[in-house]
């Protein structure tokens, strides 16, 4: 039971790993962005795990209930912000990917790099 209480943190670590791997090992840019979302979602999980109190409930104060235990509202606020930041990043990233595809004809990072290198060679 003691260890099960840490399960969330392990999942956090695993998700972090999966997302991070996709970001740095996959050349496809959309895949990178998906990986980035997973990577960020892992952090959301870390924060939200913190807020839970045993026997607690969501921090919306109920009228008439006196001895209720409420979970911590602060991590939730932070993660609300982080989620919005995440979608903003993804949106901007996707816009860039679209433009990159129009300019290069590919969204694989290694291929764009090759094209870049050819371009700078021809400039010499």
């Amino acid at each position: 039971m003691e260890l099960l209480g840490l399960y969330n943190y392990w999942v956090f670590a695993v998700l972090l790993m999966v997302g991070f791997y996709a970001v740095i090992a996959r050349p496809n840019m959309i895949k990178k962005l998906l990986g980035l979302s997973i990577f960020q979602a892992a952090v959301f999980l870390l924060y939200i795990t913190m807020d839970k109190v045993e026997g607690g409930t969501a921090p919306i104060i109920q009228k008439g209930v006196v001895d209720a235990i409420y979970s911590n509202p602060l991590p939730q606020v932070l993660i609300l912000t982080a989620i919005v930041v995440g979608i903003s990043t993804t949106a901007l990233g996707l816009a860039l990917v679209v433009r990159i595809y129009e300019a290069y004809g590919t969204i694989e990072e290694d291929e764009t790099q090759q094209l870049d290198m050819q371009q700078s060679d021809s400039h010499k």
């Binding site: 970001v23 840019m29 980035l36 990233g93 300019a103 990072e109 764009t112 870049d116």
Partner: peptide, 20 residues
Amino acid sequence: DRRALTATFKYLIMGTIGAT
């Protein structure tokens, strides 16, 4: 330059990793 786009994308990925 079109390379600005790929450079931005790279920065976006690395910057987001850093922030995260």
